[in-house]
Each structure stands twice: as structure tokens, then as C-alpha cells.
């Protein structure tokens, strides 16, 4: 369960406004990357975002480049989940692979307002806002497992199925 303040944006928010291409090979430290989050969209975001905040956006959030820093910048800026009407597919995968929760729920996006506090319950699949409670379909099990492990790399390390003789770490049990 997470609780956070909403930063609300519109449709088709692309990776170049989330994290500009000119920084993709020059800024590599995640905490530095976070300082440029949404630079071309909302100059206040990086300055004012707090740990646990939630992004609520329209259709096709994260469209454009495959650059993973578009996820890194939001995650390290403190964003705990992104709720959108829909996601661009590579961005969606990148979120899961970095352990950042993504939820698709059109109804909730239409009602939730910028700046309000919302609560997301992943167990129940509900979003609680001052406008009411919204249900969202749970993510498939294999994706939830990756998220629970904290991302794809951690998931591989934890997952005995992927063991090969080259792995340099002891397998951990799946949570």
C-alpha cells in the first residue's frame, strides 16, 4: 500500500520531456539523473517532488525513446507509482524492470486532481481518492513477481529458474 501526493499530467507525455536526450550519455548517476526529471515539462517537479509522490497521467505515458533514464529519473526523484490511462510499451516494461509500480485506470485518472493525496492498495487493486475508490485490474503474476523482487535484475538473481553455471551468486528463495 502506498500513499502520496499527485502530480497530474496530460496525454502523450514523451521521454524527451521526461528526460532529455541530450543528457542520456552525459549524466549517469541516478541521483543526478533525478534532478532533471520532467525538465522539459514541469520545471517545478524536480525541485518540489517528495518521496512517495505519485504521477497521474493520461494516455500513452512515456512514449518515444527506449531510454530507461526516463524511469530512473522519476524513481530516484521519489515517485512511488505511476497511474495512467495507458502507457507506451517500452516505458511500461522499463518501469517493471526497475521495480516502479505502474497502474492503468482510466476512471481514476479522469477524477483524481493535481495535488491531492491518494492511496493505492496493490493487494486489493484499489485506488482511494477524495472522489471515491477505483478498482484496477491486477498485473499478471509474472510481472508482479518482478515488481516484488524490486526489478528484473534482482528477480533474475533471486530466481533459480535462470541459474546457469556462470552465475556468481547464491540463489535466494522467491518471496
Amino acid at each position: 500500500m502506498i500513499n502520496g501526493r499527485v502530480w497530474k499530467y496530460g496525454d502523450n507525455i514523451n521521454t524527451d520531456v521526461i528526460f532529455p536526450g541530450k543528457y542520456t550519455y552525459t549524466i549517469t548517476d541516478p541521483t543526478q539523473i533525478a534532478r532533471y526529471a520532467l525538465e522539459n515539462l514541469d520545471k517545478n517537479f524536480a525541485k518540489q517532488v517528495k518521496k512517495g509522490d505519485i504521477i497521474v497521467a493520461g494516455e500513452n505515458f512515456g512514449c518515444g525513446s527506449s531510454r530507461e533514464q526516463a524511469v530512473t529519473c522519476l524513481k530516484y526523484a521519489g515517485i512511488s507509482a505511476i497511474l495512467a490511462k495507458s502507457f507506451a510499451r517500452i516505458f511500461f516494461r522499463n518501469c517493471i524492470n526497475q521495480g516502479l509500480y505502474v497502474i492503468e485506470c482510466r476512471d481514476a485518472v479522469n477524477k483524481i486532481e493535481n495535488g491531492e493525496e491518494i492511496t493505492i492498495d496493490f493487494q486489493k487493486g484499489t485506488i482511494i481518492s477524495k472522489k471515491g475508490t477505483f478498482a484496477f485490474p491486477p498485473l499478471p503474476d509474472n510481472i508482479l513477481e518482478i515488481l516484488k523482487d524490486g526489478g528484473l535484475i534482482e528477480h533474475i538473481r533471486n530466481n533459480v529458474k535462470f541459474q546457469n553455471p556462470n552465475i556468481n551468486s547464491s540463489p535466494k528463495s522467491k518471496c
Binding site: 527506449s66 530507461e68 524511469v71 517500452i90 522499463n94 526497475q98 510481472i143 528484473l152 535484475i153 546457469n164
Partner: peptide, 18 residues
Amino acid sequence: AGIGRTETAALWATDQLW
């Protein structure tokens, strides 16, 4: 299909992806 960096690393390591 396009994928991200983390999953490319995973493919290098495991040769598998969902």
C-alpha cells in the same frame, strides 16, 4: 521490438525475456 536497457542486460545474461 524495442526493449529497455535492463532487459537487454537480462537477455545477455539469460537469453530469455517475457
